[in-house]
Simulated assay, not measured.
Amino acid sequence: MLFAALLALTTLLPRVDAGLEAARAQVLRLEAALAAPRVPPATPRFAPEARAVTNWREEAGAALRPSSLALVARLSTTDPAFVARCVKLNNYWCIKQARWPGEIGGDAEGHTGFATAADGADAAASLLRRYYREYGRRTALAIVRRWAPASCGLAAPAAPARSPAIRAPAVSAALAPHGLGRTLRARFLARHARGGAPRRPAAITRGPRPDLRVQPWSPLARMAGHPGRHAARARLPSLRPVADIASGVTAPEPARTLPAQAAARPRGADDPAALLARPSLSPDRLVAESAALPPIAAGLPLLDLRLPPPLCAGDEVRIANYAGRIAASVGLRSGDDLRLFDADGRPLPNLAAVMLSMSGVELGTLRAGPDLVEAAIRRLAEGHARTATTAEAAP
């Protein structure tokens, strides 16, 4: 009930947020005054069972906006639905683990758990400078493609199986538990020749099967008595010329004599079953060749039968929207230079707006406060100035 009321006030009456900000600051000062003489602040730690840092509520109440929702997250006894997982890690930009200063743990996806929200803001500012200066990613789209890349749900490929003739990839046991030969694609290729024509059934062995009773008048009994590799096929009558409507007007052309070898060979029109008797590749060879066909979706070097077709359209839309919001925060397009740092590496005014926008995209309902971002940028500029002074003083 309290959350619904605060959310309605924040949405419908934006001016109330200033009063809530003052109330939030007063509550924090009162809590600090009451807790200071009695209990020292506990050292924050990462709780793997909760996938959260133990002090995330205090940090969220002091550093996040809007103030009404931050106050709800601070005082609530349960985890509100609008609180993203990175909020509980004091990581408002969802940065991955890389031995950052203040890093005390991480979740199963590799997101860093920071001791304080200030440590997370410092890491975000430092990482953006690395992207901009070292990696040369100066546009919003280039930054987002590295910051939040598309995954497509593809697992890491296994080691390929070796063959003396064709190197075919290994088969995932989860995708084809009975092996590659029993997948739907392999069974289709085994039943059809090139071009999709159905294969001719395998020749029936001579003599009746022990588990099959063959009647004397059945086709199996007749075919079992004929020697040879294939069962006898019924021949179609040879084609005869049809009488012309204007018979007698023109003299018919003399019949051409064909060589004996050509005349003995059955034609497709005379014997359609002969078309299916042509030798073709084995099913295993067809399956191996199908793996080397051009990929259906771009991004895969070969058509890997182990993996489902990648569906990255949703990720591409997400990346484009992410980059659009970042660029719009500084009045640019997603392909324009964001102008985050100057030639010497000093932060420019656009850096604060970009960091605030990125935090809002990562957290959804909540976002980092301006004070947190400005303090991180100030520390980044001071560190850059100290590094430049030390470099100039070095002989």
Results as ranks from 00 to 15, higher is better:
Arg278His: 07
Val287Met: 13
Glu253Ala: 12
Arg333Ala: 03
Leu305Lys: 02
Glu253Cys: 14
Leu332Trp: 00
Leu303Ala: 13
Ala264Ser: 07
Gly331Met: 00
Asp337Gln: 04
Pro237Ala: 13
Arg213Leu: 08
Leu275Ser: 00
Thr250Arg: 14
Leu293Trp: 14
Asp304Ser: 09
Arg306Thr: 11
Arg209Trp: 09
Pro227Ser: 09
Pro308Cys: 01
Ala263Arg: 14
Ala246Trp: 08
Gln261Ala: 13
Leu286Gly: 07
Leu236Arg: 14
Arg339Gly: 14
His230Trp: 10
Arg233Leu: 12
Val214Thr: 04
Trp217Leu: 06
Ala246Gly: 11
Gly314Phe: 15
Cys312Lys: 11
Ala327Gly: 02
Gly228His: 07
Gln215Glu: 11
Ala263Gln: 11
Ile245Leu: 12
Arg285Trp: 15
Ala262Gly: 13
Arg256Cys: 13
His230Gln: 09
Asp337Phe: 03
Ala274Glu: 05
Ser247His: 13
Val330Arg: 00
Pro272Lys: 05
Gly324Ile: 03
Ala231Asp: 12
Pro301Val: 04
Ala298Pro: 01
Leu293Ser: 05
Pro259Asp: 10
Ser238Leu: 05
Leu340Thr: 03
Leu311Asn: 15
Ala255Val: 04
Arg213Lys: 10
Pro266Cys: 00
Asp336Leu: 07
Arg233Gly: 06
Asp270Gly: 09
Arg206Leu: 12
Gln215Val: 10
Pro310Trp: 00
Asp336Gly: 07
Ala298Asp: 03
Arg333Leu: 02
Ala255Phe: 06
Pro295Asp: 01
Val287Thr: 12
Leu338Asn: 02
Leu338Asp: 01
Ala231Thr: 13
Tyr322Cys: 09
Asp211Cys: 08
Arg278Asn: 05
Ala323Pro: 01
Gly268Ile: 02
Pro259Phe: 10
